[in-house]
């Protein structure tokens, strides 16, 4: 998504919320840190670091001079983060919202901030952190801080939460659960569901009838005489591909019916390559799905 937007001429910030610097590997670049680095023209990437985020927050908001005066900041951070486990979440969401607000107010160049967010089990806690903190903290600067974050996250003109899944039973089940939970508990607007690794449809109905006929022993023997004994494996493999596709189609039907969101489909990629080539292929498919 970030690459697609950059190819469309936008200035994009890509954030890895779990702090994985190797997100840059998708662009054939060395791991990135907290400071955004250009990984593709128009596209910068950064890895979340909650401690760096706190330091930045203290420096920018409270004009507190760095470490020295407050004692060992790292230790204090460890302590606070462990004492109130919402702290890491709020520092993650806070940094992202900060970049968005800077961009909106013209101090940062981003047209789009793309976040590779926490996994299904964590995302509600992460995005709900401003709300949770707001309920806990009744006065003070944190209250004001979480207020504007919540506003940004809830604004459909600014934020969209997109769920990425695969057409398998558990991922589909979790996606449906997550979408329901987000609608129920978070004021964050949902965007689309991206279904990755969709298998190609091999046969039409007529093809399928012919395929079944070709799998009869007499036909297999005849085919084997021409293309060799491997025909058995090829037919078994085709059966696996067809069944996999069919099972997945059922999950997709269930997903479509349950989430009431636009669905974008990305094909399973049968290639050996990794890195930039794959990123480009996915961006291309995404562009096609979006009609760009």
């Amino acid at each position: 998504m970030a690459l697609l937007a950059a190819q469309q001429g936008r200035q994009v910030l890509l954030v890895s919320a779990d702090g994985r610097g190797d997100i840059a590997a998708f662009f054939e670049k060395r791991p990135v840190g907290f400071r955004p680095e250009v990984v593709f023209p128009g596209l910068s990437a950064m890895a979340m670091d909650t401690e760096a985020s706190l330091q930045e927050y203290l420096r920018l908001n409270l004009r507190i001079p760095l470490p020295g005066r407050v004692g060992p900041l790292a230790k204090m951070f460890d302590f606070v983060a462990n004492a109130a486990p919402g702290v890491k979440e709020i520092l993650t969401v806070g940094k992202i919202c900060w970049e968005v607000r800077e961009a909106i107010e013209g101090r940062a160049k981003w047209d789009l901030v793309v976040v590779d967010a926490a996994a299904t089990g964590h995302i509600v806690a992460q995005l709900g952190a401003p709300q949770a903190i707001e309920e806990l903290v009744t006065v003070g600067p944190v209250k004001t801080q979480t207020g504007w974050m919540g506003d940004l996250l809830a604004d459909p003109a600014v934020t969209a939460l997109n769920v990425v899944t695969t057409p398998e039973e558990m991922p589909v089940h979790e996606t449906i659960e997550l979408v329901g939970k987000v609608r129920q508990t978070l004021p964050v607007p949902l965007g689309a569901v991206v279904v990755n690794r969709v298998l190609p449809e091999l046969f039409t109905h007529a093809d399928e009838v012919a395929f079944e006929a070709l799998r009869q022993p007499a036909a297999v023997a005849a085919l084997g005489g021409v293309v060799g004994p491997g025909i058995g494996d090829v037919l078994t493999a085709a059966d696996l591909a067809v069944t996999l596709r069919r099972t997945r189609a059922q999950h997709l039907t269930r997903l479509r019916g349950a989430v009431e969101l636009p669905l974008l489909y990305l094909p399973e990629l049968f290639i050996r390559a990794q890195g930039m080539r794959v990123t480009r292929m996915v961006a291309d498919s995404l562009g096609e799905e979006l009609g760009l």
């Binding site: 407050v70 606070v80 009744t138 006065v139 944190v142």
Partner: peptide
């Protein structure tokens, strides 16, 4: 200084809760 900072960031009530 520690309490000063904590108080300014989190607010007194929250610190009391903690």
């Amino acid at each position: 200084p520690f309490y000063q900072v904590a108080d300014r960031i989190l607010g007194g009530q929250f610190l009391e809760d903690i």
